[in-house]
């Protein structure tokens, strides 16, 4: 993401990281979560679930910011995200170039 102006407090901003969970057997493959993920985290998987739909799969796990949009747009209660625990060596701070 590029900012037109680098915020002065950019070093202090903590961007939350999220982990996406997909409840595959509930998915009906509408693709809403994939199309409207602001960070382009998901893609359609090639596999079929028990109902014959293609559930989404996480393609860029590190990009998820735990915004929950996939969770709220999903008509099937089939996807949600939780906040990722801070990783070692990761203080949660991001540089403006990320």
């Amino acid at each position: 993401m590029k900012y037109w102006r680098v915020p002065l407090d950019v070093d202090e901003i903590q961007v939350t990281r999220g982990i996406v969970h997909i409840v595959e057997e509930r998915c009906k493959g509408c693709g809403y979560c994939i199309a409207y993920c602001p960070r382009d985290v998901l893609e359609m998987s090639s596999k079929y679930n028990v109902k014959g739909y293609h559930p989404p799969v996480v393609k860029k796990p590190e990009a998820c910011v735990n915004c929950h949009y996939c969770e709220t747009i999903c008509p099937d209660f089939a996807i949600y995200s939780v906040e990722a625990p801070p990783q070692e060596g990761d203080d949660g701070k991001h540089s403006a170039s990320c």
Binding site: K28, C30, Y32, Y53, T72, I73, C74, P75, D76, F77
Partner: peptide, 8 residues
């Protein structure tokens, strides 16, 4: 159905 908005 798949894509139906009611669930949302």
């Amino acid at each position: 159905c798949s894509g139906c908005g009611i669930g949302t």
